[in-house]
C-alpha cells in the first residue's frame, strides 16, 4: 500500500515486475505493546463462545459448567487447600523429571551428535520411541513399579528425555564444521570442543528440545497422575469425575494449561534471551 502511494506520488517504478521500493512484501514489525493483547485474543474468543454456548444455546450444566461454576469451584479448591497441594505436587514432579532428563539427555545428545555414525544409528530409534508416548508405556510401568510415585517419575523422565536427546544431537550436527577446525588448530582437544563449540553451538536446539520435553512431560504427568492417583492435578480432575464436579474438572484443565505457559515464559524464554538471542544464533 505504502509502496503504491510512493510510486504514485513520485516517479514511476523502473519496471512493473520489479518489487516496489519500500518492500511492501515484508510485513511491518508488530508494536511491542500490542503483543500481550494479541496473545489474549484467541483466549477471549473461546471464553465468549463458552458464555454464548451457555446463555444463548442453553447447553446444560451436566455437559458444560458455566464460567461462574468454574470460578466458584476454583475458590472452593483453594479454600480447602486441595489446589495448592495438587499444584505443588505436579510442579515438583515436572521439575524433578525435567531436571533429570536434562542432566542425562544433554550429555548423551552431545556425545551422539559428535559422531556421524551414531546419528544414523540412533535417528530412527529415537523417532520410534518418540512415537511410543509416555502414556503408552504407563501400563508397563504400573506392572513394574505399581501405583507409585516412581511410575509417574519414570513416565515423565522417559517422555522428556527423548526430545532432549534428539534435539541436542541434531543441534550438534548443524554446527558448521569450521568452528571445530578452528579450535583444533589452536591446540584444543575433545573437552574443549565439547565446552566451547558443541554445547553453546547446540544450545538453541537444546532449548527447543527442553521446551518440547517439558510440554510432553507435562502431558504424560497428567495422564500418569490420573491412572496412578497419588495426588497432583491429573488425580484431582479424575477424582472430580466421580462426583461429576464439572466445575472442578474445567478449573483443573485451565490450570494445567496456565501452569505450562508460566513455566515456558518464566523459565525457558529468559534462558533463550540470555544466550542464543544475544549471540544472534536462535532458530525459528
Amino acid at each position: 500500500m505504502r509502496a503504491r502511494t510512493e510510486a504514485g506520488a513520485g516517479r514511476a517504478p523502473a519496471a512493473p515486475w520489479l518489487r516496489p521500493r519500500g518492500s511492501a512484501a515484508r510485513s511491518p514489525r508488530v508494536p511491542r505493546r500490542l503483543v500481550p493483547l494479541l496473545f489474549a485474543v484467541p483466549f477471549l474468543v473461546i471464553i465468549v463462545a463458552w458464555v454464548l454456548a451457555k446463555s444463548v444455546f442453553g447447553v446444560s450444566d451436566a455437559a458444560l459448567p458455566s464460567v461462574g461454576d468454574v470460578i466458584r469451584a476454583s475458590g472452593q479448591l483453594i479454600n480447602w487447600g486441595i489446589l495448592p497441594y495438587d499444584v505443588s505436587a505436579s510442579l515438583y514432579r515436572i521439575a524433578l523429571g525435567t531436571a533429570l532428563a536434562i542432566v542425562i539427555g544433554v550429555p548423551l545428545g552431545l556425545l551422539l551428535g559428535t559422531s556421524r555414525y551414531s546419528v544414523i544409528m540412533f535417528g530412527p530409534f529415537l523417532r520410534f520411541f518418540r512415537a511410543v508416548s509416555g502414556i503408552a508405556i504407563l501400563p508397563l510401568l504400573i506392572v513394574w513399579f505399581g501405583f507409585t510415585e516412581t511410575t509417574i517419575q519414570v513416565a515423565i523422565l522417559y517422555t522428556a528425555l527423548i526430545p532432549i536427546i534428539f534435539n541436542t544431537m541434531t543441534g550438534v550436527r548443524m554446527i558448521p564444521r569450521g568452528y571445530a577446525d578452528a579450535i583444533e588448530t589452536m591446540g584444543g582437544g575433545r573437552a574443549r570442543l565439547m565446552r566451547d563449540v558443541y554445547l553453546p553451538g547446540a544450545l538453541a536446539s537444546i532449548v527447543v528440545g527442553i521446551r518440547l520435553g517439558v510440554g510432553y512431560g507435562w502431558r504424560a504427568l497428567i495422564a500418569a497422575e490420573m491412572l496412578v492417583g497419588v495426588g497432583g492435578l491429573g488425580s484431582m480432575i479424575f477424582g472430580a469425575l466421580q462426583f461429576r464436579a464439572l466445575g472442578q474438572i474445567v478449573a483443573g484443565m485451565i490450570l494445567i494449561g496456565l501452569l505450562y505457559l508460566i513455566v515456558d515464559r518464566l523459565i525457558l524464554a529468559p534462558v533463550e534471551d540470555a544466550t542464543v538471542r544475544r549471540w544472534g544464533v536462535q532458530r525459528g
Binding site: P176, G178, Y179, D181, A182, I183, E184, T185, M186, G187, D196, V197, P200, G201, L203, T275, W279, G280, V281
Partner: peptide
C-alpha cells in the same frame, strides 16, 4: 592440527557465542 600452525579461515570461524575479547583470547 597443532598450535605451531595457526589458521585464519575464510568465514564462520570465530565463535558467535564469544565476544570479540573472548574470541581473541580463545
Amino acid at each position: 592440527p597443532g598450535k605451531d600452525r595457526g589458521v585464519v579461515f575464510q568465514e564462520l570461524a570465530i565463535l558467535p557465542w564469544r565476544t570479540v575479547r573472548r574470541n581473541i583470547a580463545h
